[in-house]
Write a protein that binds this DNA or RNA. Structure first.
Length: 518
RNA sequence: CGGGGCGUGGCUCAGCCUGGUAGAGCGCUUGGUUCGGGACCAAGAGGUCGGAGGUUCAAAUCCUCUCGCCCCGACCA
């Protein structure tokens, strides 16, 4: 077992940090709350980005880029928006530096109007859209941007909440309220499908209560995932902004019947937080476990040999397997040192590596790749060479099997990865269902909350009740699920059946998900 | 911002109470033996002890100030 990783049972927070370190994903930066995303972590983000981007393009969106700096005055234009973001804005007030006379430096010239570093881009994009949109013919405007944003957080955790993070933010403008609502829900569906099929994270999609709504939105939808400690992680959001921003920024268009109206806008985003979600959904006490769809390295081949003549024969054999797996010639490229050979899997950008490092013994290499979450490891030694076989170990369950070498083709690899991908999703879904409970009394809810999980409880729909529960238990309404039926440990639960709010005693139109959250 | 804790080679930490001029384990480098689930031997490299000031013949150690980080609370993708 891994000696450099604290077990989940002992200390879940420390486990999370240990997995990131052992998996070579990110480092803390010299600046509090920021992180250095290392190549292996960034490779995961690239695979997330590319596959999401393809989905955005498929739904008619195009990419653009808006500036990092936003005039402070812009933020003031939408009342709720300022209220929500004012406290977490980084503000630029000076330009230039000068000697402070004590061997250090100090800011020099104060600038006229302070700039804020974008915490999100509704305002600058609203301002821009006002210039771009004149007519109904300019609509819908469907734009996404990949960017970094800054939010001055008090407490941070790598990937889950950092002061600077990478994300995508879609910003669309429409002719009608209905179209905006359709877009909002469409992107929620895109996120849901992506989370489940690419990240192998089962999510519940639903709407946020007023208290949890995005600052400036009419309606906020989200996908909520359950981590292995039973806490909820908001993994993506989609907002119907109504005409709040179009009125604040005067985004108007001439209608088909020659009137002038404000447009209806939406925004939606996911961030590098998803990587934290992947870790807390799939990783185990041995380290990272990556869904194959976002694994920068899908296969690590570890050669085993003692003598020089063994080494040569085994390496030749291993290279042959590598060529077979990638479905063609091995295009060797170094990864983190000249001793690891790497071939790109055509059409996926992911890689197969052959670990040639002479300084390490096979067990060291097993741990190395295992802790990085590589889905498939193939071990080949003299015995395999002689028998025409290879030992295959899958990361999901760490099961070993002996496979005939000719079977190890690209088709075999794709099938194996697909099986692993599905197994992760199934496992995570079973985990969530086993920790989802319908509760009918406040006592029952409070008694079981410390054990973690999603609690399906009736709610009278008032902010007062929600606030009381939050203050007394630290649990919040994660969402009002879109689906009528949710699976729980005790079987399917009808979320729309009416009942009584156990806290207030008032009538309830249905159940919502309560949970403690990240 | 309130409450706690901690700053000593790349990492984890000992030494501080009772001042005497810096140590261990891991990691790293080189060579050798090893090699199918975290090896071993040998030889090395690497630290102005977070910073500034003070006390003293002498400060990692005592005093003052300061900076930074971590944990817990109030806010959040």
């Amino acid at each position: 077992m891994a000696t450099n990783i604290t077990t989940r049972a002992k200390d879940y927070s420390q486990w999370y940090l240990d997995v990131i370190a052992a998996g070579d994903m990110a480092d803390h930066s010299p600046v509090r709350g920021c992180m250095v995303i290392k190549p292996h972590g960034y490779g995961i983000w690239e695979l997330i980005r590319d596959q999401l981007d393809a989905r955005f393009k498929a739904t008619g969106h195009v990419n653009a880029y808006f500036p990092l700096f936003i005039p402070m005055s812009f933020l003031a234009k939408e009342a709720k928006h300022v209220e929500g973001f004012a406290m977490e804005c980084a503000v630029v007030t000076h330009s230039g530096l000068e000697q402070d006379g004590k061997g250090g430096l100090r800011p020099k010239g104060q600038i006229e109007e302070p700039l804020i570093v974008r915490p999100t881009s509704e305002t600058i994009i609203g301002h821009t859209y006002a210039q771009w949109i004149q007519s109904w013919r300019d609509l819908p405007l469907l734009i996404n941007q990949w960017a970094n944003v800054v939010r001055w957080e008090m407490r941070t955790r790598l990937f889950l909440r950092t002061m600077e993070f990478l994300w995508q933010e879609g910003h669309t403008a429409h002719e009608t309220a209905d179209e905006a609502q359709t877009e909002t829900l469409q992107m929620l569906d895109v996120y849901t499908e992506f989370a489940e099929n690419v990240l192998a994270i089962p999510v519940v999609r639903g709407e946020k209560s007023a208290a949890e709504r995005f600052a400036g939105a009419e309606r906020t939808y989200c996908i909520e995932a359950m981590m292995q400690d039973g806490k909820a992680l908001q993994s993506g959001t989609s907002h119907n902004l109504g005409q709040n921003f179009s009125k604040a920024f005067d985004i108007k268009y001439q209608t088909r019947d020659q009137k002038v109206e404000h447009v209806w806008t939406t925004s939606w985003g996911v961030s590098t937080r998803l990587i934290g979600g992947v870790i807390m959904t799939h990783a185990d006490d041995e380290g990272l476990v990556l869904p194959p769809a976002i694994a920068p390295i899908v296969v690590a081949i570890v050669p085993i040999y003692r003598k020089d003549e063994e080494r040569e024969a085994v390496l030749a054999y291993a290279k042959g397997l590598m060529a077979q797996l990638v479905g063609g010639a091995v295009a060797a490229r170094a990864v983190g040192g000249s001793e690891i050979m790497s071939s790109v899997l055509p059409g996926s950008g992911r890689r197969v590596v052959l670990d040639l490092r002479d300084g390490l013994r096979p067990p060291d290499k097993f741990f190395h790749w295992e802790q990085r979450g590589v889905p498939v490891r193939i071990e080949v030694g003299p015995r395999d060479l002689q028998n025409g076989k290879a030992v295959v170990v899958t990361r999901v369950n760490r099961e070993k099997s002996i496979v005939d070498a000719p079977k190890l083709t690209r088709a075999w690899l794709d099938a194996t990865l697909a099986t692993q991908q599905q197994a992760l999703l199934d496992r995570a879904r079973a985990f969530r269902i086993a920790r989802t409970f319908a509760v009918d009394t406040y006592e029952d809810f409070r008694a079981r909350l410390d054990g973690g999980g999603f609690f399906l409880m009736h709610w009278d729909g008032t902010a007062a009740t929600e606030t009381r529960i939050k203050e007394e238990t630290k649990a919040t309404i994660r969402c009002i699920p879109s689906d009528n039926i949710l699976d729980s440990a005790a079987g399917p639960v009808d979320m729309r059946a009416t009942g009584t709010d156990p806290v207030s005693g008032q009538a309830s139109k249905g159940r919502v998900i309560f949970a403690r959250a990240y």
